[in-house]
Amino acid sequence: MLSNVFLKTLRDNRRSWLIWSISLTLLIAFFMAFYPAVAGEESFNELTENLPESLNALFGAEDIASPEGYLDSQFFSYLGPLLLLIFAVGRGADAIAGEEQRHTFDLLMANPISRTQVVLQKFAAISVLTVGLGVVSFLVMWAFSGPVDMDIGAEPLAATVLGMSLLALLLAGLALALSCTISNKAVAAAVTAGVATISYLVSSLAPVVDELSPFEKATPFYLYDGHDPLANGFSPTHTAVFVALTALLVAVAASGLKRRDLVA
């Protein structure tokens, strides 16, 4: 596990990743267990119908008695992306700037390895860890769907989890690009959190706020759930745009780090 920066980064995260996996498993198991109580109960839908349209839009609670609506309201529209974002953005912001702040980067860079290699290998490791959390989420939901009698297809579920992971990685790429350019972990994470929050609000409220609708398609959240993956499955276009934008941000990160002085 110590052969290169990629494996070392995985190794550094092995404990925290395990804790995240267990927490996600417990969280998902918890809301899955309550599905039978909600399934088919029209009264729940009456409840949400009485709420203002904008609140429902924000929390994704439309038809919470259906499998898709339930998963959306409990996990995919808010909590799932939020958790994966926290995991990935924190690691993106920390990858380079964190080592600089802890003064370990000089010694790492005394080895014959280019700055670009370090950026690429660290981001590759963050990608594996983040998608790994997505895989755990998928497996737990899939495993519970039978016992709780939830009628949901594996393909749309996998597509949604993939989109959620890619969303987290896109913003991790942004945090990495910022931290490699300005070498300040806290600012990079804060700016990324701001971008994530604004784009979440824009994409959630666009259906009910006319002024926002022109911007809806420009947000990362639209790439994630604009095509309603839980109902419609995998979108090659959205996935390709995710990958391209993330690659662009990682390239910006590498070039930003290449240009500047390292902080001792």
Binding site: D12, D106, L107
Partner: peptide, 14 residues
């Protein structure tokens, strides 16, 4: 850096 051994003044290790 392949040919150099370096010891920083402010040494911080993992």
């Amino acid at each position: 850096r392949r040919q150099v051994g370096y010891l920083p003044g402010e040494l911080d290790l993992y």
